[in-house]
């Protein structure tokens, strides 16, 4: 199983407290190819594509409009 995380050092939370999941581009439990853009987060006027690290079945952990921080686990890629 592979993790989909917000990069740990993506932004300084002292400057900008949080981001938000703006969109998931695949459905929960859907098949995702490696390298596909699976989600978009928005942080302080930045739209940031999140890319799948592996191929497999997507499990969404943080849904659309959910709040995220650097390092947050937002999804997982399961085998199958």
């Amino acid at each position: 199983m592979a993790e989909i995380r917000i990069p740990d050092d993506l932004w300084d939370t002292a400057e900008v407290p949080e981001g938000v999941v703006a969109n998931w581009f695949f459905a929960d439990r859907g098949q995702v190819p490696k390298g596909a853009t699976v989600a978009e987060i928005t942080v302080e006027k930045t739209s940031f594509d999140i890319v799948s690290p592996e191929s497999g079945r997507l499990r969404i952990v943080v849904p659309k409009d959910g709040i995220v921080l650097p390092g947050t686990l937002i999804g997982q890629i399961e085998d199958g």
Partner: peptide, 15 residues
């Protein structure tokens, strides 16, 4: 002035 960013696609593969 206003600033904004867009980080698109995968690093090292067209992003």
């Amino acid at each position: 002035a206003g600033l904004a960013q867009q980080w698109h696609g995968p690093a090292g593969r067209g992003g």
